[in-house]
Amino acid sequence: MDSYGSKAKALAGGTDILVQLRGNRFDIEMLVDVKSIPELNELSYTVSEGLSVGAAVPCIRIYEDSVVQQSYPCLVDAAFLIGGIQIQSRATIGGNLCNASPSGDTIPALIALEAEAVVFSKRGYRSIPVEDFCVGPGQNGLQDGELLVSIKFPPPKLYSGAHFLRFIPRNEMDIAVANVGVALTLDSKKQTVESARIALGAVGPTPLLATKASEFLVGKEISDDSLYETAEIAKQIASPITDMRGTINQRIHLVGVLTRRALQKAVERAKGV
């Protein structure tokens, strides 16, 4: 891959890249199948290090993994709703991330979960926080010769919960009009928010970490009002466009609705309801 530079691309699940190649979306000379690289196929978890998901691990393996189901249900939410089963058998969250679509369906979940992208090149390994990984619509932050190896998730904290929601006009097989990932940690009484991360998708050129909304929620007591206010603040960062999948007004409005609903579910999970 190194020798082909920007003319080389990695093939993981292939559910996006093959379609893009047929549509002449980019000019490449080399497609490298990375599914056979063992490191990219590992799904591992330790209590101290958390979860590591190889870039070539298909969604179905992620959401059927009992550790992921137990400790990272938000990741299940996200991986479970990419495409149909045929796509989930192939598609990877690594590919999803590298594809860097503004509406990429796992990315806000990854951002909320404080995931980091682990990247390898001849220069060695480096880690990039997922919120910094996408740099523009369809553009990731990988340099020529760099390969996404895995995505690392910190171990879940006590009294924490997370959820991912998207809105689509159909019930499956669709691209998000808007999507939202949230993660929060409560105090030991499970009443006050100690930390929060809210991430939005399809409402800007890249998936976004809604910093202001996240910070607003910290220290607040859980209530309909506080969640509503947080959602309203999240809407402020949204700068969507109108396209065939949705309008500006609709998308901003959906950020509010989805943020509120995702927060409620995350709170339930944090409380262990």
Partner: peptide, 24 residues
């Protein structure tokens, strides 16, 4: 059919031309 201003059909795939799936 969703068209751009120059008459390009924007949703010429089964992904964006949303026919009902079994879940719908």
């Amino acid at each position: 059919y969703v068209f751009s201003e120059d008459g390009t059909m924007l949703n010429s795939s089964f992904l964006d031309y949303r026919m009902p799936t079994s879940l719908d």
